[in-house]
Design a binder for these strands. Structure first.
Length: 263
DNA sequence: CTGCGGTCCTGAAGGC
DNA sequence: TGCCTTCAGGACCGCA
């Protein structure tokens, strides 16, 4: 599922290929995916591609903006339309497809970045606002499991199930541990682990695990799945202590941890 | 305000 | 073999 590293990877590639090009046409095959009037963006030039949390921000001429959320199975990919293609962008004659098997994702046309939902997102893990003080304050306030808090986009932007599991393993913290019960030392370790794991994800171009449909715009998969330490490794040996990795359900999400290394 | 559960959607996997 | 049921999962909505 596209999380911060996957969306960042897509952003970097699209920025390279789309900046300066013109949206010549848009074909909408599934109306609910595309929100807003496509006529407002047809003919506009792409100025810049950015990211906020898991949302892609495509800035256009005339102060128009396209927001894209890929949710679970969305893809932005160059190529020929298939049965899961719901929107087709004609970019100077080249087809950029929005594919989405489960149809949870969306594309929105907006006129300004204020009041568009992005302002409710928490700090970016690579930005200045992501401080130890901020995390201490947020964690101290809630008895929710730490993993649930990590995935709360209003607390921290961009972390989903894969990177929450991996960051908690890397910092030796149990996913079910109440956020307010974390020690200062654990918060320091967790903060470092979040940054490290997300950067690792970006370095490998995101993760394309077995049941996931994430691919890069050029159609190639990412390779971070080869470096998972706990995610989907239930029943296998912990890479650190050799004990069996467990899987539980937490807030409706598959949750993976080592009962020995994580406390 | 918080937090839980239902909802969207499809293919894969499991049960009989 | 094949039909039917169950499940996964990000974010939003309604409710307690």
């Amino acid at each position: 599922m596209p999380e911060l590293p996957e969306v960042e990877t897509i952003k970097l590639i699209l920025q390279k290929y789309l900046a300066g090009k013109k949206i010549k046409d848009i074909t909408i095959r599934k109306a609910k995916i595309f929100r807003g009037d496509p006529q407002e963006v047809i003919g506009k030039t792409i100025k810049e591609v950015e990211r906020r949390g898991k949302v892609l921000i495509i800035r256009l001429s005339g102060n128009k903006v396209l927001l894209v959320h890929l949710k679970l199975t969305g893809q932005l990919v160059f190529g020929e339309p298939g049965k899961t293609t719901h929107v087709i962008f004609d970019i100077d004659g080249q087809k950029l497809l929005y594919n989405d098997l489960r149809q949870f994702g969306w594309i929105k046309v907006i006129n300004k970045l204020s009041n568009c939902g992005l302002e409710n997102l928490g700090p970016e893990p690579f930005d200045q606002g992501f401080t130890l003080e901020y995390l201490k304050k947020v964690f101290a306030k809630t008895a929710r499991p730490i993993k649930t808090v990590l995935m709360d986009q209003e607390k921290i932007a961009g972390i989903g199930n894969i990177y929450a599991n991996e960051a908690l393993f890397a910092s030796g913290i149990l996913p079910v541990k109440q956020a307010k019960e974390l020690s200062d030392l654990e918060i320091v370790r967790l903060k470092k682990a979040i940054v490290k794991i997300l950067k690792e994800g970006i370095k490998y171009g995101g993760s394309s695990a077995k049941d996931e449909s994430y691919i890069k715009p050029n159609g190639e998969p990412g390779s971070y799945q080869k470096h998972f330490r706990v995610y989907q490794r239930q029943g296998k040996n912990c890479l650190r202590c050799k004990k069996i990795i467990k899987r539980i359900n937490l807030g409706g999400r598959g949750t993976f941890y080592c009962p020995v290394c994580q406390k």
